[in-house]
Structures are given as structure tokens and as C-alpha cells.
């Protein structure tokens, strides 16, 4: 299509170029265009949070964001949380694995990037704050208890790793 444009996106600290139509949705561009399949598609309408990514450090439903609006902005996906150090995990990912934050795991990437945004803003959140910050994400497996525990545990473990850029 003639209106397709090459977008320059800054994803997980790297510049990436991708062709996108004006109505292209960020989630589609990430998953289909760039092969970043860690970000999940649960509803396509902003209700589940499985597709959450960070846009300039704030969590957004990537299924509701136009890719064209993301130029010159920092996008962080679940893949971008992995520390440089090969084999190491981000404290949230570590805590998630240890406390049983994932069962089927389909919601995990969305929860984890959302929790990351919270911990960047408030490194020592209360349980209530954690639940509020995660209230746009749905999990059908865990009853949220171990998810909340994982966030609190990651917060306690201190956040050694800077990510995203």
C-alpha cells in the first residue's frame, strides 16, 4: 500500500526499522513485524493486559496503540528486561520463577513489564499499591497471590539491574 511507511522504532534499546501502515497496531508490529512474540495477544481490546509493554517507561496495552505514534519513543518489551549478562534474569523474572508467579504463563510478560514500571516509580510499594498497579492485568490461573508476592519479593531483593536503555 502506498501509505505504508518505514518506521524507526526504539525497542529494548535498539533502533529497529519496520514497514507499517497508518492503522498498524503496535502489538501486531511487535509480534508479526519484528518477531517479538514474548508480548502476548489475549483480547485485542485493552481488557487483559497480556500485551502490555512499556512506552517511555509507562505500561500501555500495545493492542490499543498505533505503531506510528511510537516513533521517537522508548519501547520496552519482556525481551528487553533481560539483563546484558548472559544467563541472568531480571529480579522480577527471578522472583516470578521462584514464587510461582506463572502457571500457564500467558499473562506473565504483561504482568512483569507492568510491575517493572511500578518498581521504577516506587521501589518499595505496599501490597495495596502493587494490586492497584496490576489491576489492568488479568490472570486466570494464579488468583494473583503469588504474582503479588513475586513483585514484593523483587522489590525487597533491591533492583540492581537497570534496563531498557
Amino acid at each position: 500500500m502506498t501509505r505504508t511507511r518505514i518506521l524507526r522504532l526504539k525497542i529494548n534499546g535498539h533502533e529497529r526499522e519496520v514497514a507499517a501502515e497508518p492503522n498498524a497496531i503496535l502489538l501486531d508490529v511487535l509480534r508479526e513485524g519484528l518477531g517479538l512474540t514474548g508480548t502476548k495477544r489475549g483480547c485485542d481490546m485493552g481488557t487483559c493486559g497480556c500485551c502490555n509493554v512499556l512506552l517511555d517507561g509507562r505500561p500501555v496495552n500495545s493492542c490499543l496503540v498505533l505503531a506510528w505514534d511510537c516513533e521517537d519513543r522508548e519501547i520496552t518489551t519482556i525481551e528487553g528486561l533481560l539483563p546484558e549478562d548472559p544467563g541472568a534474569l531480571h529480579p522480577l523474572q527471578e522472583a516470578w520463577a521462584e514464587t510461582g508467579g506463572s502457571q500457564c504463563g500467558f499473562c506473565s510478560p504483561g504482568f512483569i513489564v507492568t510491575a517493572e514500571a511500578l518498581l521504577r516509580e516506587d521501589p518499595e510499594p505496599t501490597e495495596t499499591r502493587v494490586r492497584e498497579a496490576l489491576s489492568g492485568n488479568l490472570c486466570r490461573c494464579t488468583g494473583y497471590k503469588k504474582i503479588v508476592e513475586a513483585v514484593l519479593k523483587a522489590a525487597r531483593s533491591g533492583r540492581g539491574v537497570e534496563v531498557g536503555s
Partner: peptide, 18 residues
């Protein structure tokens, strides 16, 4: 911890649509 916990927490777990 579940044997696939790290894959799931890192977005590396592969679901059918992936």
C-alpha cells in the same frame, strides 16, 4: 519452582500463535 518457570517469566515460552 516449575521446570518451565524461567521460560515463562522471560517471554521465551512458545505458545501456538508464537
Amino acid at each position: 519452582p516449575l521446570v518451565d518457570a524461567k521460560r515463562k517469566a522471560t517471554g521465551q515460552a512458545v505458545y501456538t500463535d508464537d
